[in-house]
């Protein structure tokens, strides 16, 4: 399967047109979606106004954490129904009997989510650049490393969302499952770690926690000493997190491709 077949000529690019229509076209949910879009534009404008006005008190890490929070919600919201909603609407089997490979289906579904997360990230670049003025410790290297964590995590989340979507029959169930996994990983796991593991060893168990990793990358001194030492600081490069997240995303995507099933839960003859 070539890059051209998987991405450039992937027929599932029709998903963009559908998503575009949901916001700008005349459809059943057009008005509500248009209202949501207007709200998003207003929130973004306010954010930019705040950053421009108070840029001397801002730090790029605040914008990066905002980006991470937004992607934590936007990516699953966009991709939870990638496959589960097709099953629910009974369009799934018609796609599976077509001469299209599992890889084309899964990658095609992910392209839309990945483009959206890149678009949201791009929107926040001006705010990140402007907020440099308020943080003397901010360096280009730190911002890039933190951005690597954010994007790596978002890619992983996209792959996780499609993976879970491929295993559920209802889009709502997929969404609940994804948020449950996020709560376990982002909230329960750090609590569990802080209660049961000594301070000095927590960094090893949390080095893939995106919020924790960003804090350690941004302020290794204070945060490192706060958690009891900096022996594990070498783990928090940002690039290591990016590599591990991308690796995990690739593995999840591969598993999704290899275990894709029809609406009966049967894989059918191999594709």
């Amino acid at each position: 399967m070539t890059f051209r077949e998987l991405v450039i000529e992937n027929p599932l690019q029709i998903e963009f047109k559908r998503a575009f229509r949901r916001f700008f076209g005349v459809s059943r949910n057009g008005t509500l979606n248009a209202a949501i879009l207007v709200l998003c534009v207003m929130v973004y404008s306010i954010l930019m106004l705040v950053v421009i006005t108070y840029r001397e008190f801002m730090s790029p890490i605040a914008i990066l954490i905002l980006q991470l929070i937004m992607l934590t919600f936007i990516v699953p919201a966009n991709l939870h129904g990638a496959i589960a909603a097709e099953r629910e609407k009974r369009t799934w089997d018609m796609l599976l009997v077509a001469p299209i490979t599992n890889a084309q289906i899964v990658i095609g579904k992910m392209i839309g989510g990945v483009l959206l997360l890149l678009f949201v990230s791009a929107l926040l670049i001006p705010a990140t650049v402007l907020s440099f003025a308020g943080d003397n410790d901010a360096t280009f290297g730190k911002v890039l490393a933190a951005e690597a964590v954010v994007l790596g995590f978002a890619f992983f989340l996209a792959a996780l969302s499609v993976f879970i979507s491929a295993r559920t029959k209802r889009a709502f169930a997929a969404q609940l499952t994804i948020y449950a996994v996020l709560i376990l990983g982002l909230i329960v796991w750090p609590i569990f770690t802080s209660v049961l593991v000594p301070y000095r060893e927590q960094g090893y168990l949390l080095f893939m926690h995106p919020y924790y990793a960003m804090a350690r990358i941004w302020d290794p001194g204070s945060f490192g000493s706060m958690v009891g030492g900096a022996s594990d600081q070498a783990l928090f490069t940002g690039w290591l997190q990016l590599l591990v997240f991308l690796g995990a995303a690739a593995v999840l995507t591969q598993i999704t491709i290899q275990t894709l099933t029809n609406s009966d839960g049967d894989a059918g003859p191999r594709r």
């Binding site: 559908r18 229509r21 949901r22 609407k89 009974r90 369009t91 089997d93």
Partner: peptide
Amino acid sequence: RRQIGYMPDFFGLYDDV
């Protein structure tokens, strides 16, 4: 797959197209 056209007993259609 290239030679068949399959219409399931229950089917859905994509919205917004």
